[in-house]
Structure formats: C-alpha cells, structure tokens
Design a protein around this nucleic acid. Sequence first.
DNA 1: TTGTATGCGTTATCAA
DNA 2: TTGATAACGCATACAA
Lengths: 357, 357
Amino acid sequence: MHEAQHPMTPPSATRRATITDVAREAGTGKTSISRYLNGETSVLSPELRERIEAAIAKLDYRPNQMARGLKRGRNRLIGMLLADLTNPYSVEVLQGVEAACHALGYMPLICHAANEIDMERRYLQLLTTYRVEGVIVNALGVKEELLQTFSRGGIPVVLVDRSVEGLVTDMVGLDNVAAVALATRHLADQGFDEVLFIVQPFRRVSSRRVREAAFRDTIGPLAARGVSGSTIVIDLADAAPALAAIDANLDASRLGAGRMALFAANAPVALRVALHLKERYGADWQQRVALMSIDDSEWAELAGMTTVRQPTYDIGRRAVEFLHERLEGARMPARECLLPGELVVRASTRRDNSQGI
Amino acid sequence: MHEAQHPMTPPSATRRATITDVAREAGTGKTSISRYLNGETSVLSPELRERIEAAIAKLDYRPNQMARGLKRGRNRLIGMLLADLTNPYSVEVLQGVEAACHALGYMPLICHAANEIDMERRYLQLLTTYRVEGVIVNALGVKEELLQTFSRGGIPVVLVDRSVEGLVTDMVGLDNVAAVALATRHLADQGFDEVLFIVQPFRRVSSRRVREAAFRDTIGPLAARGVSGSTIVIDLADAAPALAAIDANLDASRLGAGRMALFAANAPVALRVALHLKERYGADWQQRVALMSIDDSEWAELAGMTTVRQPTYDIGRRAVEFLHERLEGARMPARECLLPGELVVRASTRRDNSQGI
DNA sequence: TTGTATGCGTTATCAA
DNA sequence: TTGATAACGCATACAA
C-alpha cells in the first residue's frame, strides 16, 4: 500500500446550498423557489424565473430529497431485496427494475442478502426505516408476517420469481409450468428416453416447487412414448450425495443403452453439475452427457448448453410497473404475471450430439 | 397472466407510528423517546425506560431515517456507483462493500450505470440529492470535475479499480503491475514463447492502461529468454477486427511451430475470446490454444482456464473503511491501496496442455 | 404573481 | 432525570 504525496482537497468543505440560500440569492421567498422546482413555472414571472435559475446555477443548488420526502410523505424510494446477486438472474432482473425506476422517477434501494436469511430480515427492517414507498422482493426465507407489516402499512409489495406462503400480493416471474414443459418435451423430441431433473431443496421456495411439479406432470404422460424421468435434489452446500446419485443414474442408463439427459432447475445447479461432469468425464464431458437448464447464463453459450432463457428484464420492469400502479392509487386484487421463457437450443441436446444415436 | 381471486389486504393502511405517537403512548415527552433511541439509556429511570420499550413494541415503532438525517445532517447513506454489475468483479466487490457497510452502520445506495456513461452522471447527481455521506466509484467515464463537487462539498470519494485523471483521492484496487507480471512470467515459465495481451480500449480507463503497460514492461526483458509478446485492443461492441487479428497471430505462430498463449485483461474479454475460439476450433478449443485472464469468473473452473483472482471482497471492504475513516474526521493525504492478486493455475496453461511440447 | 406561516419526524438546546 | 421548544430543508394552505 503506497501513499500518494498530494494532499486531499483543502478543508474548504462548503455546506450545500439550501432553498433558503437560493431564495436569498435570488432576492425572493422560498415559496417561489419551491414552485420553480416543482415545475409550477406558469405562475412565475419570466423575470423572477430567470433570477431563480441564475441563483440555482450559481449556488449549484440541489433540492434535498430527504427533506422533500419528509414533507410530502413520499421519497420516491423503492426497496429491492435480492437473495443472491451472484446469480445472473438477479442481476438481469435488476436491470429491468432500474430501467423502469428511472423511467418512472423512482430510485431503487438495492439490498443484497447474499443468501443469508437473517440478512433478509435485517434489510427489510432497514427499508422500513428509510420509508420506502414500495418493495420488490426476491428472497429466500422471508415469511408472510414480515411482509404483511408492509402491506398493512400501505406499502405495496411485489414478489419476484417466488411466492410466499400465506401472502396474497402481486407477483411476477417466469411461467415455470410452460417453461419446464417446453424443455422436457424438447428432450423427449431429441430422443432422450430418460430425464433427470436436478433441483435444490424445493419445499420452501415456490419456483423450485412449481418447476419440480411441472416436470413430473410433463414427464408422466411421456411414458407412453417410452420416456421416463425422476427428480434429484441437490444441496449446493453439500452436493456430494446428489452428484453420486447422478453418476449412478448415468451409469445405469448407459448399461441399459439408454439415452439420459440432465435437466438443471436453474443456473447455479447447472454450473455445479457441469463442474462435476467435467471432473468425472474430462474436458469433453459434453460429448458424453447431455445437460440443459433453466437460466441462460453467460457461460451457457461457451459450454454449448441448451437452456430456457427467462424474460428477466421484463420481469424486473413489470415488477416496478405493478408497484407504480399501486402507488398511483390503483386498488385491485393481487395480480400474477407469468412471462414465457424461450428455449435456446444448443449442441448439448441436439440429436447428433451425445453417443450419436 | 392470471388474476388471483383473493383481494389485497383491506385498506386498513395504518400510518406508521411517529415519535410523537410513542411519547403519547408512553405518557412522556418526545425527548425521552429520542434519548432512548440514541442509547442515552443511563439518564433514563428504569421505570420510564420500561414504559418506552412497551410503547415502542406496541406501536411497532421504527424511527424515520429521513427525518433523522435531516436533523443530524447525516443519514448513514453511502453511494456506490457501479459501471457494470454484469461483470462478476463488480458483484464481488459489492459483497465486500455491503458487509463493511453493515458492520459500520451504513446503508449502501447502489447505482448501476449499466455501462452507460450518461447514466453515471445522472446517478451521481441523484446521489447528491439524497445527500449521501460518501461515495464509492467504479465508473467508466466519470470525469474529475464531477467528482470534485463531492470532495469540495466535504463528501469523501473513494475510487475502485480505476483512477480518474486529475483527481487526487483515496483509491483501492488490484496491484495490477504485480498481477500482470505474475501472470506473464507464469506463461513464460510454462514454455510459451509468444503472448498476446488482449485488452479493451485503454486510453481512458486507468486499470486497463496500467495492465497493458505492465504487460509490456514484463514481456520486454523476457526477450532474453526468447519470449515475445504484443497487445491487441478489442472493442467488445465490435470485436471482429480484434478476433481476426488474434486468429492471424495464432496461425502465424503455428506456422513457425511456436507456442502462443492468449492473455485476456479481464473476464468480459476472456469470455468473448473464448466464445470465438470455441467457434473457430470447436468444443475442444482448449486443446488447441492456451487462454488465461485476469478475473476468476465462475466459468473459469469449468473451462479449465488459468486466471489471476482479484481480492474483490477485500477491495470492497477497504473502500468502505477508507470512507469511514474520513467520515470519522480523519484528515490525511489521499491513499492508494493496491491488493495482490492470486494466480490460479488450471489446465489451460499447463505445460502438458496445448500442442504438448 | 408573490410571500408568510405552519408542519413533516427527529434531535439539540435549554430550562426545570 | 425530564420536558418544552426550536431548528433541519422543504412544500403547501392561505393571505396579500
């Protein structure tokens, strides 16, 4: 660690100008300044308006959002709770949220819980103290009661990707049923006769639950076409058992000369499985086993992995719009917006791949 | 999009309790409540304290940070400007920032400019209006003047990863010179006799500039050992020319029976190059050409790519600490904290890889 | 068209 | 040990 020799800017720390300063500088009252700021420009004489503009420019005045919010009762802050920014899904949703916020004049207060349930609670509390006008929640273990305090306080809540048991509120996410069906049928169409659906513990996370159920619902009828499947639950913190189970299934299928495909329920699972396959089968693991997943991460193209791309950007945008409508006073029943996923077919599941049927 | 049938929670929208409500409920004055909130617990009679606690619990009172901030002049908000959350580097730095903020009682106000220079400006303005106490900046095109308004206003600024021309302020980042030297020497040690350093346009981004210079400074002396190298500039928005140049170099090297390695200056570049190599050489591109990079992204392990891992978490933590010290009133010259990177050797650059010398 | 006075929820100053 | 009261920076009802 080096020290630079130049000193910091001298302690000329000038206090930021307030509306009072501007009023004095412009030789008028605070009200006029306030009017100018709020665009009530028609009621101001051109002459006064000019003086105000000059004063603002000269003092580099910026209205204090805090004070503003205190007075009008809304500060344009929207809370965004994210379970895991490490998951590209979250980042992409965030982009949509940011864009929509910008367009509608909100400022997202982003809280990243880093997969810690306790953090989620703390952040939600914090959002409360900052008096956000609404919250968008993509959490892991937040329970209904916690969110109810928002709803009850008149703070609209929008859920992203996963619903929360016992809570009836706006929610937006992937149409999981359709997405899983799409993917599963694709695998069947490509000639795979056995599909292993790999998912994290799903009791408590609705999207995982729905995806798993959708998988079983889709694979069931496919038995008529000779296609079967089963679910493997993987705990990313202790993946060994699940990975061993996958290996066993793969081996058995190979013995019976079957064609098996692995279907990861999301990107983190896919990555973990891919790493394992690479370890077990070497660099050309993709020649040996077919892997697909929900979530189109940046490395999917590199790995040539078929995926279902989520409409992440739109999910984020929609979430903000839902919030905005409530904030504008719309009263209506809770809504559910399920957006369709898009199948991105790559080499991993193409008929000519794998042991080249 | 479906409509759920349950209505939203009834419009019982109860206003959040204020300090006045609590005072009334506890049968005392606001001052005592304020004292309790600020931990001046010693000056309160146990009896009164209990009543206050009860009132707070009953009303589920949460002090309004906005009002607090307005009064005390500091709101515990720290601005964090990120050029690109799509880059895992940023997310990791963010994790460090969040952890440190939490530990020190700050709330990070995260602004994601999504690689748009204009957004950076707008967000910086916004941060100003929210009266953040300090800012951490990892931007693309922010210029000195813009940041000066913060410094001059007494708002400390900490730069992350890249410095800004003409601005003397605290800065935290990777020790680029050491990292590039480490990586380059590793390549030489592994028997590569030619290294192509691939970097985005670097005039305006200090870290890229420094890395490029460090590469040349390191590769120069290695000529004695028969190792040469050159730089290729890649524009991710229009990568074709650079990729063609890479191909040409690769072909030439192969003709001369040389062993060439590609060295990407960061993860986004590495991904782009890897995608291209896969396209050109097929799924086993890694058998054909050696690629390494700065930044240890999640797919690096999957691709078996050697990298230099940045101490991202510590960078974020350190940035907040720098800020905190200034906010606590420490006056000192601008500091520069350069943290060491860690070489993560994988198959891509091992001697036995590639055309197996 | 402009300005005065009051209050948003909190903390700080002062007096009791 | 406690409690009025006056700000903080701004927006609004109201008066001029």
